[in-house]
Design a protein around this nucleic acid. Structure first.
Lengths: 151, 151
DNA sequence: ATTCCTGCAAACCTTTTGCAGAGGT
DNA sequence: ACCTCTGCAAAAGGTTTGCAGGAAT
């Protein structure tokens, strides 16, 4: 094995195929192209990020198609919505096994990740105490970078 | 004292006035009317909620004015943005002293509140460990109502 | 007087939708 | 064949902005 990417792509392609079969949907070249592109993007991306990268590659894919497909990918459990960025665009990320939440740097606007099992556990218990069963959550911390202070 | 509301309104009016003075901005009848209306609304509201209530009261205020003023109120620290609802509208709430986060019921779409000091503390520490200083956060838990199960 | 504020309508932006044709099964 | 998918352009929906007149300081 030369590169670790193929395996991930294959895994996701299988998952997508299963979902499509299950729902009686069909595969399309655009669909797999979109997935291949977003797997190459850094952790967090918007529809426009995908559109930009895809357009400069070759013929290009209509924006509507990307919107329609990202929705399918969310339903297939391959991608998830994370937060709305400062421009009002939905930010997505590939849903891999390790769940995490986000810290948005108020200085450079980069998005970082964190995972605190304690928080996960507490929020699950808290929901249960309120007679809810947690399905998902969005936890975003907005913070200033300490390095900025030194300037 | 007959009703407890006046005091809260007064407190917020002072806070707003301070902010306006500080920034060299001016008071307006619409501005205070908007604030009076949103203080009467239940915990969580959108711009459209304010607009609806204000229109049926008397002359009515332009939507743009509400958008512009809610932004001012956010900057003045009287109101905060909490989450985007299912229609894509920003949901606001009055920023009172007791901080809390939100549980959105996936069955009835109502918004509930929770506060877990443990989570607050952990996320603050976690940010610090990553060399950030937490400024704020948005923590929303999406959950199913247990009562639904019994049906 | 100067500067801010409002109202209206137009503009903006992201996302959605309608439709005709292409493509998958 | 049937039904899904794409591409385009138009529509939708929330929010912002430009402008002329009105109000606050």
């Amino acid at each position: 094995m030369i590169c670790s990417h193929p395996t991930a792509l294959e895994r996701f392609e299988t998952k997508l195929q299963d979902y499509l079969d299950n729902k009686g949907l069909k595969q399309s070249s655009q669909r797999s192209r979109i997935m291949r592109f977003l797997l190459l993007l850094p952790g967090h991306f918007t529809v426009q990020d995908i559109a930009r990268d895809i357009q400069e590659d070759s013929p290009g894919i209509g924006a509507a198609t990307i919107y329609r497909n990202i929705k399918t990918l969310v339903e297939a459990g391959i991608v998830r919505e994370t937060l709305v960025d400062q421009d009002g665009q939905m930010v997505y990320e590939v849903l891999d096994d390790d769940h995490h939440d986000h810290i948005v740097c108020l200085d450079c606007h980069q998005i970082f990740e964190f995972h605190e099992e304690g928080i996960e556990h507490t929020q699950r218990k808290m929901a249960a105490k309120m007679n809810f069963t947690e399905a998902s959550h969005r936890h975003v911390v907005y913070a200033h970078c300490d390095y900025k202070k030194g300037v």
